[in-house]
Design a protein around this nucleic acid. Structure first.
Length: 220
DNA sequence: CACCAGGCAAGTA
DNA sequence: TACTTGCATGGT
């Protein structure tokens, strides 16, 4: 069976089992972009608290956030953890958009997909996953987002090697699937949903799952 | 109590 | 190049 067919089956199984995940939660592209930085190695529930703080303070806009003193920003995003680090990373990101795109997020997101990704990747504190998350979920361009769950799940299902890097695994998806924003959106969200799950006896897709605490295995 | 969560960059050998 | 470590809060 081809990789394309196996990925398609995995996607269909996950969609049937879990249903649409409605990613990314966020009321605007800007909010999604900020959330992408705040959620680095951090539970989403904590990110929501930080975003609520920013909304409460009335600073959840590119201009307002750019003008915020670093200590103030750090204080507001404190619940998201690594707050000093992330305040700097947000500042770097907003600085790039202000300098290169005159603070015009719509203009930036209207650029070709590779321009967006490369501009984001050049920002210190924005790595491959954050850059691609912003490109897909905020700019709505077709790039497949890879994360730790994706490595583990595809490795477990024999679709990825141990020594595969981010961009190699990304190629597996993008060579096999049509560049469809809605598909990439849903697929990544479903992989995260699967990855969050732990083996329960009641999980109908959990076959060959040796014990509690193991990642569920979807049989293809 | 330990462990994890939608990473990334800098330091070390 | 290939590991290791710092960053930090809040839920289970």
């Amino acid at each position: 069976m081809s990789t394309r067919q196996r990925l398609q089956e995995l996607y269909d199984l996950l969609l049937t089992a879990y249903g649409p995940q409605h990613w990314w939660p966020g009321e605007s592209p800007f909010e999604v972009m900020v959330g992408a930085v705040l959620t680095q190695n951090t539970n989403w529930a904590n990110v929501e608290k930080a975003i609520a703080n920013l909304k409460q303070a009335g600073v959840l806009s590119l201009a307002a956030l750019s003008d915020l003193p670093p200590e103030r920003l750090a204080g507001l995003i404190r619940p998201a953890g690594y707050y000093n680090l992330k305040a700097g990373r947000l500042s770097n990101l907003l600085g790039m958009i202000n300098q290169r795109w005159d603070g015009d997020l719509e203009w930036f997101f209207a650029q070709p997909v590779d321009e967006i990704r490369q501009s984001l990747l050049a920002v210190k504190g924005v790595g491959p996953e954050t850059a691609d998350s912003i490109t897909l979920y905020a700019a709505h361009k077709p790039v497949f987002v890879i994360d730790a769950y994706t490595f583990r799940i595809l490795g477990r299902h024999g679709l990825a090697d141990q020594d595969m890097g981010y961009f190699e695994l990304q190629e597996v998806f993008m060579d096999a699937l049509p560049p469809d924003v809605a598909l990439f959106n849903e697929f990544h969200a479903l992989l995260v949903r699967l990855g969050k799950g732990r083996c329960k006896k009641t999980n109908p897709h959990c076959e060959g799952c040796p014990a509690e605490g193991w990642l569920p295995r979807v049989e293809l």
